[in-house]
Design a protein around this nucleic acid. Sequence first.
DNA 1: TCAAACATTGACACTAATGTGAAGGAAAGG
DNA 2: CCTTTCCTTCACATTAGTGTCAATGTTTGA
Lengths: 133, 133
Amino acid sequence: MRIGELAARTGVPTRLLRYYEEQGLLAPDRAANGYRDYAEELVDRVGQIRGLLDAGLPTKIIKQVLPCLANPCTIRVATAPAELIATLERERDQMDARITCLSRNRDAISAYLDTARRAPAPRAEPPAPAPSD
Amino acid sequence: MRIGELAARTGVPTRLLRYYEEQGLLAPDRAANGYRDYAEELVDRVGQIRGLLDAGLPTKIIKQVLPCLANPCTIRVATAPAELIATLERERDQMDARITCLSRNRDAISAYLDTARRAPAPRAEPPAPAPSD
DNA sequence: TCAAACATTGACACTAATGTGAAGGAAAGG
DNA sequence: CCTTTCCTTCACATTAGTGTCAATGTTTGA
């Protein structure tokens, strides 16, 4: 499919799809006229890119991670030198840390919301600057 | 304590501590000479800020979230108008999505690492361009 | 067939957010 | 006095994402 259709199906602007390609995250074929030609599975790929970016991973890392996640069944072990393994391990550990931090804070927010909902929302008061507790 | 000590204890450069203050995430007192005077609990606060930033939350949101998470025991319900509640709910949902995405991909990476480790790391081969499966 | 309407291309520049570097000056303390 | 720490301020770096332009390709309808 061409870039317009992919944009429509993923909700990602054409401009951004070209940007991702520039960053090495996508590598569509080219038609004879120079138009990009996206394979069907790139629809999912774009979603995955969006998710990872939104999760805080930089494009440089996503570029390294994507090839390992593209075909879950056909993992390309052959393309994994020790260097990449190390990068992935580092990244996985960072993701673990991120998940932990996010979970903790999400729980804290949830707890706050629970408490706040129990009390009636008052008219806005001046922010209490750390009550002496 | 002064900015240098806080930087030493948190590992966050003084420059960045001033930046966070500029963004409204920290509001240390000032000594007579103009020096910033950080309270003890701001050590933890800085750690929390770093975690949230690394988790992908923008400073603008952290600024709203922090007051609710600062004193887990002394939650300031009074300062939570409906608007803030809505913001927090939105943010919590986004954090949920982020956590889900991160977890999924972390698991995928882990699975890849497991497989890759089972096979000997070969000399780098040309990247297999999506084998037909 | 011709032309208007629309999609795609590369390219340059720009914004917003996070983070750094460095200059120039003032305060603290030996 | 001299060094260290701190102050403000301006500028810069990086990353993700957008705006826009002129040129070319495609589609469609008169």
